[in-house]
Design a protein around this nucleic acid. Structure first.
Lengths: 168, 168
DNA sequence: AAAGATTGACTTTTCAATCTTG
DNA sequence: CAAGATTGAAAAGTCAATCTTT
């Protein structure tokens, strides 16, 4: 019993049986949503979230760092992505009048139209791939759980060293 | 009320409130797991899944296409990734004796050792970031739901055209 | 000097084209 | 010609270094 399968050695079988499909969804669902958006709207999922994040804001405008959090990406990733959207005329960048070190991004008219055009297809995909497949109440359970997980993702994940020296 | 926020126009508020954090986890959790593995074990999450997939197989050997499914990636992505692992001596490729068009990947001794060394830290991260934060039963609910979603991800996600012409 | 953001170099992923075997 | 797999070029993402404003 000591030369067990590595991937299962440290997770109990019951945990593993639930973690593995979840992990699969984690890896495969974003790709699927991304593909749909690219195919039907020439927009990445990240790009979509950027436009959506701006559309929610007063004046369709937000500081970059705020937008990065909304779109679940690093500031650097956002900056690169916004450069692309800006070149396509979907977003405009400008310095915040009140604070020179803040850059705000603003949704252009075309950006808004692009988002409006992309939304139905994206939401349809979310329904078809996720919402419609869940049993009643599952979405809510998942939503609450996700909220909790998200909180934990803020802090770093320290390496394990002297503390949990698991026996072999 | 007609110039509503685009991102919320097509999902009911209750759905959105649960979908948004889930979407956040979808985007941010893989990165977090990836970072931990890269930092502590010089392995990507995808690379880890490849090694883990092989470690589960008889003779530590699997056809590429089988491995691609296990690791939740495309064959092309797998091929590139295995090239990297092969150069580092963690995996070996060879033609299947029984069927010349099948390439099988085999875990080397070093690959197995690398996986063994990486596993505790990875599993610890999974616990810390996910499992420990879930309420009793939530993991199982999520696991079942994920299984269902995964099934749906197999088929394509057709574009929406003449069918669901939503009113504005 | 720290916050906010950008940049460039490097790595990873994707997409379409290709190659090889059955 | 279809299945299994690889390749190369282009796109996207990550990381560390940098720049500017406070």
């Amino acid at each position: 019993v000591n030369e067990d399968v590595v991937s299962t050695r440290w997770l109990r079988a019951a945990e593993l049986a639930d973690w593995m499909p979840f992990c699969g969804v984690l890896l495969a669902l974003p790709s699927a949503l991304d593909s749909q958006l690219r195919r039907d709207s020439q927009l990445s999922l990240f790009g979509y979230l950027i436009l959506a994040g701006l559309s929610d804001a007063p004046d369709h405008t937000r500081p970059m760092s705020e937008l990065a959090v909304l779109a679940n990406g690093s500031l650097s990733r956002l900056s690169h992505a916004v450069s692309g959207l800006e070149q396509r005329g979907l977003v405009r960048r400008s310095a915040d009048p009140g604070n020179g070190r803040i850059t705000v991004a603003t949704l252009t008219y075309e950006g808004y139209e692009t988002l409006k055009a992309a939304a139905p297809g994206h939401v349809e995909a979310v329904r078809r791939l996720v919402l419609d497949r869940l049993k009643d109440g599952d979405l809510h359970t998942i939503g609450r759980a996700a909220d909790t997980i998200l909180t934990g993702l803020a802090g770093p994940c320290p390496p394990l060293d002297a503390n949990s020296t698991s026996q072999s």
